[in-house]
């Protein structure tokens, strides 16, 4: 196992760099007397993490939960629709304009409408997440399904394979890299969509925590919340990339 030491090495590098950055941050504030409203010290942000940990955990859980549920729903929906669209071309021609209309609508504009219909609360966040993450998955999945090698499809046809077998043995494997590319984009916008809809509905999530601590000038809490959101965005990105690597072991090159 050669992977383990390199992973540990990278992890320790990341740790080291973080420590150095934090040290530089603290020293810069002391040395240049930067007022705390511009940039709080790492120590005070750390303290904010500890004193507000209950709030932080609650709000983060709310945001992540709505992002996760929304992503799961839109993933299933998008994959199903992609198969349907690719299999039955007329359906796709009829439905695509509607899909594109949804996609070009800015999240900030969609969220208020959704709230009018489903009310304040987690439902709005989930629906908004579904809407923002649906499109990249659908488009990529369709592109992948259509990218299948025509010769392989003809081969299956010659063997009298069923529609389902076509998908199972040729189209689905071909589309996996594209699906992951879509999921990566979608998961980033899912977190963003969840936080944005909180801004509109006022539900207790990370987005609202950032907004309110910003308005109230609780700088340390603001920084704690911002750092949490960045860390989670990175974790979500890393997770989808790792899942992609694990599933696509047979494919070295990445799709665009």
């Amino acid at each position: 196992m050669r992977a383990a030491p390199t992973f540990l090495k990278r992890l320790s590098m990341v740790f080291l760099v973080t420590v150095i950055l934090l040290g530089a941050w603290q020293m810069a504030i002391v040395a240049f007397r930067i007022p705390p409203y511009l940039l709080p010290t790492p120590a005070s942000v750390g303290a904010a993490f500890i004193t507000n940990r209950a709030t932080l955990i609650d709000h983060t859980a709310f945001t992540l939960l709505s992002a996760f549920i929304g992503l799961a729903v839109s993933g299933l929906l998008a994959i199903g629709l992609a198969v349907l669209f690719v299999t039955y071309k007329p359906v796709s021609q009829a439905a695509m304009p509607v899909v594109i209309l949804f996609r070009s609508a800015p999240v900030t504009a969609v969220a208020p409408l959704i709230m009018l219909f489903v009310g304040r609360g987690i439902a709005t966040s989930v629906v908004v997440v579904v809407i923002v993450s649906f499109f990249p998955i659908l488009v990529n999945m369709m592109r992948g399904l259509m990218r299948a090698d025509p010769n392989a499809l003809e081969l299956l046809h010659v063997y009298g394979a069923t529609r389902w077998q076509h998908i199972r043995y040729v189209q689905a494997p071909y589309s996996l890299p594209f699906l992951f590319a879509g999921l990566r984009v979608a998961s980033a916008s899912a977190v963003l969509g969840a936080m944005l809809s909180e801004w509109v509905t006022g539900s207790p999530g990370l987005g609202v925590l950032i907004l309110e601590s910003g308005v109230m000038r609780e700088i340390e809490t603001l920084w704690a919340a911002v750092i949490t959101s960045v860390v989670f965005a990175l974790i979500v990105f890393a997770l989808t990339s790792a899942a992609e690597k694990a599933v696509l072991h047979w494919k070295a090159a990445q799709p665009t």
């Binding site: 409203y37 511009l38 980033a188 977190v191 963003l192 936080m195 944005l196 801004w199 987005g207 950032i210 907004l211 601590s213 910003g214 308005v215 700088i219 603001l222 919340a225 911002v226 959101s229 960045v230 965005a233 990175l234 990105f237």
Partner: peptide, 16 residues
């Protein structure tokens, strides 16, 4: 830079 959520950047930029 793109992994910083827009929503996190807005209040900070507003402060600065």
């Amino acid at each position: 830079l793109s992994s910083i959520p827009l929503i996190a950047a807005t209040p900070l930029l507003a402060l600065w």
